[in-house]
């Protein structure tokens, strides 16, 4: 950028930089807040390791640094009013129960999305159907349309908000962990 008699002249370099800045801005608009770091070695209860000093809990919440999933359940019993399912991202629930980043993504510098069949090595479709047979108004793990063939990640997301895929056409009030 050069100034001459108070007028601003745009050099090609400046234009490129401005375009670049605009581009960067566009990218940031897609992310309303800074994503937490992903520290694979962090203990599951150590929120600050990834989130920094960002307030994850209300001030009255006990320190979780040394807690295990079992400890959480003292207050957050599954099926109870304070259950964690549907509130915490799936990856956190996995972590708390000992399924660390590496167990799915392997020991790599840049973890990549894993194939859905990896989910099914632990989560047996038929057993899930049995487990949720009494969920109202319908069993979420089977349907007259797709049986048990659907991709787990249609509903259960690990690093994003989970969603209720059925609700595209239906209105089922499922809690989706």
């Amino acid at each position: 950028m050069t100034r001459k008699h108070g007028n601003i002249r745009f050099s090609p370099g400046w234009l490129f930089a401005a375009a670049l800045a605009f581009g960067v801005l566009l990218v940031y608009i897609g992310t309303p807040y800074a994503a937490p770091k992903q520290v694979a070695s962090a203990k599951a209860g150590d929120c600050a390791a990834c989130h920094g000093q960002e307030k994850v809990f209300s001030p009255s919440h006990p320190d979780t640094k040394a807690m295990s999933y079992k400890d959480c359940l003292g207050c957050h019993a599954k099926g109870g009013p304070q259950m964690l399912q549907g509130k915490l991202p799936g990856s956190h629930l996995h972590q708390l129960r000992g399924v660390t980043c590496e167990k799915c993504h392997g020991k790599v510098a840049k973890p990549e999305a894993v194939e859905e069949k990896l989910c099914r090595t632990c989560h047996n479709a038929e057993k899930l159907v049995e487990k949720t047979a009494k969920v109202k108004p319908e069993n979420p793990h089977t349907s007259p349309h797709y049986g048990t063939s659907l991709d787990c990640t249609l509903c259960h997301r690990q690093h994003a908000k989970s969603e209720n895929y059925c609700n595209q056409c239906h209105k089922f009030n499922f809690v989706v962990p």
């Binding site: 670049l20 800045a21 581009g23 960067v24 566009l26 990218v27 608009i29 897609g30």
Partner: peptide, 16 residues
């Protein structure tokens, strides 16, 4: 801060 961002990198990103 974003000096390292190349044009190619920008095009790869979602906005691009």
């Amino acid at each position: 801060q974003k000096k390292g961002l190349t044009r190619r990198g920008f095009l790869k990103s979602a906005g691009g």
